[in-house]
Design a binder for these strands. Structure first.
Lengths: 227, 227, 227, 227
DNA sequence: TATGAATGAGCCTTCATTCAT
DNA sequence: TATGAATGAAGGCTCATTCAT
């Protein structure tokens, strides 16, 4: 069900360097970029194809040419968004750190990533409102699952061996808690900050929350409380 | 135009019992009930007034008579939804329990409430997608804030006095963590369970997650780890 | 087709004086008053029954009780409006003036009356847009016709006898010219003043136009030009 | 949103004659044509977009595509209507006639034009009911003003020089009187003919009124009465 | 590959009117 | 006489999508 039926001709001609994306590829990317903003801001139903087209370098017809339907475009946006989560761990060299430090790094990186990608967060909210029915066909997702779960599993095992983490903790449970705390901080920012009249945007507030979340996860995993 | 507070006549006549709501009140309530389902299922933009009307005991025209617009109805649904959160604590007699037990009860009740009110959770997701702009005018919210924050504050103080909770914890931080863990469990159920192929609906899975969340919060507050 | 089917009970009880209108009569009058403003401002189609009712001392139901329909109310407004034109001549004692002075007085009074009754002017515009189909049933109109035409006829005859007015002028033609000049000055004030950037509202501008119109009519009737 | 000036491609291809308007231009013109009838017949509020669309060669959607709203269509109709007034003078070669003859020609032409364009007259009535608020943005109007006022000014001057017209007459006053007499004859035809039971449609009646109006204006301008 | 023009279905909203009391 | 509640029909407008070129 992937919408990328069109075979995108590799760029040819004198200007076609190695990494340089071809014109069609750039058009595609441009559309997806604009669409991500619109969908994340207004939801699948609330976004307008006309508006997306207008903010694009190309025309409305091209959206249908490349993605076949509004929903197809939405799927493409979703796919591209999920492809970026893997960047969370890619810049960490967790294996070289002590287990607790490694976990601290990971939680912090997860927090930062969510903080820097509110579009993604809103997109996922949308998906859940729609019972995650569009997520089905996205291939890259199962590899993502294995990456993060393996990473956490090994981290937990190392911690147990080192005598700092509790035995028997499930990596999926751990991941869920990390995600919950980091995700909610962005997803529910508007309602929470309005109801509790609390600033959640200033660098100071963000840093404080980051510390608390890291601490919460560390305490849950550790045998002895960190001081 | 005029904001027309519909004065809802108290029911009179032979059939009017004490608590029995009048006919207009019932009409209003019926509309809100149906609308909550639609809005939470499809969002503000995705919901259809026609469909709401059809599932109602009354006609589409009445929706506009009572609520003036789709958005007005949405606001009414939101208001009623937020009024029900206070039920979380109302059935607990926390003061009579030891601090740690009391916190356990509170977290558990919060977890259960979210679990039993997925409509509310989706509604809040929608609000956040729309930057919580419709929440502004809802009066009952500030009282809600004070209730829960006072409760947590006193609980933390009692725990500090009893020598079981850490000093200097902020009740709003605590509330945010509890909310995050409980909310996410419902809000992101669809994406999470699909990606990680994990059952999140069975009573067993729910109970397990409930225990982990309670434990996580307890460990964050406590001086010494619970065994 | 008069809508006044309801027999209005004469006021009784201690407070019922001689001239004092009964409560129903006052209600009727109040409704008509509000309706005239609405209809003249927005036309038959543009006026809203709800809005009329809201600005009234009574309820929407009463409008239907007294006038049976929006159109019935419109007819009643029209009828009342046409009843007031007779006031133009009622305060003049034309017979006692010389023909030219009498005509001057009459034209000036007609001009003033239109100027002071823009509601009437707009109502008549509306009627013409609707091909004057609602004017049919209004009884008082034919008497009005005879009054003004007789008056003009006698005036012309006196002028001819006195050797100041031309022979053979038709009173209906004369009336049409007077009406046209006076009516247009109010009816087309908005477009004209906007297009020609000319003030048509200041007392000075009004007086100047009044003089020109009077002069125009006088010159048309007179044998020798007034100096 | 965006004001979208539709760029109407000039017709190309084998069938494209010189003056032949392109298809979009024809669509636009067709809509405006139908709309003018509807608006002039029923006013802005009374006209129905559905009905306009039905009498068109195209669909309702196209109305919004080209004009964006009912009001936008109304404005376009108004604009096109005002553009046609300039045709009044375009066929006269006034400069070559003696001042009095020239004025006679001009008044007659104005009379005829109004008589042949009842749609325009009703449209202007509508505008005045709405306080001429839609006329503001129409550019062609100020040029129209200057054309007619200049023409009258020169005519008056020539008449003064020739010793036939009075000194000191204002061309705007003159234009207002001409307009009033010609406009009213069409605009109030329905009420007037009904109230005064006078035929205003027969060629004979029209010719008679035309003569009276011309005479009225001539007498107002002239030093010595025409015989 | 690209674009302006076109569309049918359906959406939110409003209106004049009537009913129950 | 008076009022709040209720309604069916229709009105203006928008949307995702397709066509002709």
């Amino acid at each position: 069900m992937s919408s990328r039926k069109k075979t995108v001709k590799p760029a040819t001609g004198p200007a076609a360097g190695l990494q340089e994306p071809s014109a069609p590829e750039r058009t595609r990317a441009n559309i997806i970029d604009v669409a991500r903003q619109e969908f994340s801001e207004k939801g699948l139903a609330g976004a307008r194809v006309d508006e997306i087209a207008e903010r694009t370098n190309t025309s409305k017809r091209m959206i249908y040419y490349y993605f076949e339907s509004k929903e197809g475009l939405y799927r493409a946006v979703l796919e591209q968004a999920y492809e970026q989560i893997r960047l969370i761990e890619s810049n960490l060299n967790i294996e070289q750190l002590a287990p607790q430090d490694a976990l601290r790094e990971l939680v912090g990186a997860t927090f930062d990533w969510h903080n820097q990608h509110p579009d993604f967060v809103r997109l996922v909210m949308n998906e859940n409102i729609h019972h995650a029915e569009h997520i089905a066909g996205i291939g890259s997702i199962s590899t993502r699952r294995q990456t993060i779960i393996n990473l956490l599993q090994q981290l937990l095992q190392r911690g147990v061996k080192a005598g700092v983490f509790r035995r028997g903790l499930d990596p999926i449970d751990l991941h869920m808690s990390i995600s919950a705390l980091c995700f909610y901080n962005v997803s529910n920012r508007h309602t929470f900050s309005r109801i509790f009249e609390r600033d959640m945007n200033s660098p100071k507030a963000v840093a404080a929350r980051r510390a608390i979340i890291t601490d919460t996860i560390l305490r849950w995993c550790s045998i002895q409380q960190p001081v």
